[in-house]
Write a protein that binds this DNA or RNA. Structure first.
Lengths: 318, 318
DNA sequence: ACGGTACGCTGCCGTTTCGGCACCACCCCG
DNA sequence: CGGGGTGGTGCCGAAACGGCAGCGTACCGT
């Protein structure tokens, strides 16, 4: 329905080059070039700054770009909305997520969704924390399953769940019997840390700094899967939320001990949606589904190694 | 920039007829027809119900229509935004207004705006109260200068001013000396009323009903100008806000006596903007301008016949 | 200094799309 | 049973679009 120039303009801005955009679009660069020139002529001002390296949007270009991208996103949403009129939900749900959610939790959710709504497609990505705000605002993703960060603006938290970042280790680890641990206690043993590029790490480093503990991690990685393997092999203690290790904890292969530090013992994971954007029907369904699933074992997330009914005393304890 | 089919689709829906739309668009009806058929083919579902009388959007059509219209409005806004990058504000401001504001107040505002920003165009309309919500929501207008109505949803009140609906009459009218009047007192004299189709009337009829007063108006009209003329000619008392009669009141040609009924003595006029819609630069300027102007003589609106210092004597006399 | 390369841009030309015209089929109304 | 209204359809010229080859330029590495 929409003019081709919208896609062209978007791609050129993304690629920073007319020729690259043309290649990505599978059209001749001349065609793309002419569309851009014609567009600039219509708007009346240059939309790109030309340089040897390529093109860069001007202020006017940025403004129009926002309109174009919003239009494309809204069109997709409208299409999904129309498709769901026929009863069958379809469309694409675009999610950005913590890698820990992505390891065990979300695959199950996605499987359940596809079972009920076969025509729904998914894009599930982990992103650099610095790109979270942009990914949500730009509409590249419908919503995020992320740590709740008060610094994020223009974002609504539609659901929120307490979880405890804790020490993850094998049952035969010397610290495995503890009900709660401090970072200082853990620091005497080999530890395994997430790469500091990631949000979890960002939270933890600040906490470490406050507690005065100094950790020299034996292993650093940004892969939850890698961490799983090295922790299972007894190479050290990992600091994670239990979510990505539900199976191992349930089977007794690993033990998750909450940390005493207040900022870590009650981290909050939430469903974050961009404010002022309507959600597509499949995205709405997906959010409801995630919310329901999360509340179902919310207690497990908060205190993974014990049962709900008995927690009142113990909480007073910790 | 945007495909022609957007305009076609919009017009067809508005006109309820492909041929009428084609005429309004100055293209052949066959061209419009084919674009619609092609669009329906692309979306995959019928967008219109065909009947002998013309076409009517289906549910899917309504959905897509909302997207299309929003796209067009946002495009205009983006254009205006780009244009204001160059320093000169341009674009069109679309306002819906009370007719009383339209009689004296808004023309002055518009004149001042065009003096400062010659490239800004205006559309100022009075609309049927039942269409206010639709006009704001659909984006047909940027904002409204209207009575604040709590029943309106999805609308923000960015500025609000108390005003008093009162009895307007010539200085030699028997009631002209009163400081405050009740509807019952006025009911003994000939009155002039706004046509009941209009919001002001809607407010007043409820108030009349509560106060138990029965008015059999000598003259009914929906034209502020007509009311002005017949009141000046001494044909009766009008029930209005003083806004549309500033000049006459200041010159002493007419006297405005507030009404005692609480719902009338402190009516609220506000600037109403649709929530969740960005305003174009000229619309923002216009709103700020109106707000400033209104606060400047806000006291005049609230108590027109009693200026704190100088005018108290004369008013008491008349 | 000099190719090599990547960039945006521009004639030229075939193909696709668009729009105008005339016309068909249909329905309602007088 | 016409007359006027509706949406839909061949046909055809015109305009737009896209592909190809090529131009000028600026940068980079040898």
């Amino acid at each position: 329905m929409h003019a081709a120039v919208l896609r062209y303009f978007d791609h050129v801005a993304r690629q920073g080059s007319i020729r690259k955009a043309a290649e990505a679009l599978s059209v001749a660069s001349s065609a793309v070039n002419r569309q851009i020139l014609r567009l600039e002529d219509e708007i009346g001002v240059p939309l790109f700054e030309r340089s040897r390296a390529g093109v860069r949007p001007t202020a006017a270009g940025e403004l129009l770009l926002r309109h174009v991208r919003e239009t494309q996103i809204e069109f997709q949403r409208a299409q999904a909305e129309i498709a769901s009129l026929g009863g069958t939900v379809s469309g694409t749900v675009r999610i950005i997520s913590l890698e820990s959610m992505l390891a065990r939790f979300l695959p199950e959710i996605v499987a359940e969704m596809t079972a009920r709504h076969p025509r729904v497609n998914f894009t599930v990505l982990t992103v650099h924390p610095s790109e979270i705000a942009e990914a949500l605002r730009s509409g590249d993703s419908d919503f995020g399953v992320l740590f709740v960060d008060n610094r994020l603006s223009g974002v609504d938290v539609v659901a929120e769940f307490r979880t405890a970042i804790g020490a993850l280790m094998r049952p035969n680890h010397p610290l495995a019997g503890a009900k709660v641990l401090t970072l200082t206690e853990c620091a005497r043993h080999p530890v395994i840390m997430l790469n500091d590029r990631w949000l979890l790490s960002a939270i933890m480093t600040t906490e470490f700094a406050e507690s005065g503990a100094r950790l020299s991690p034996r292993i650093v990685s940004n892969s939850i899967e890698f961490m799983r393997q090295v922790i299972v092999r007894g190479l050290g203690i990992g600091f994670v939320t239990p979510i990505g290790f539900i199976d191992e904890i349930r089977r007794g292969e690993l033990v998750h001990v909450p940390l005493a530090e207040p900022g870590l013992s009650d981290s909050r994971i939430g469903i974050l949606v961009p404010r002022h954007r309507r959600l597509s029907p499949p995205a709405r369904l997906m959010i409801n589904h995630i919310r329901q699933r999360l509340t179902e074992f919310g207690s497990f997330l908060a205190a993974p190694t014990r049962e709900p009914a008995k927690r009142s005393k113990r909480n007073r304890r910790a």
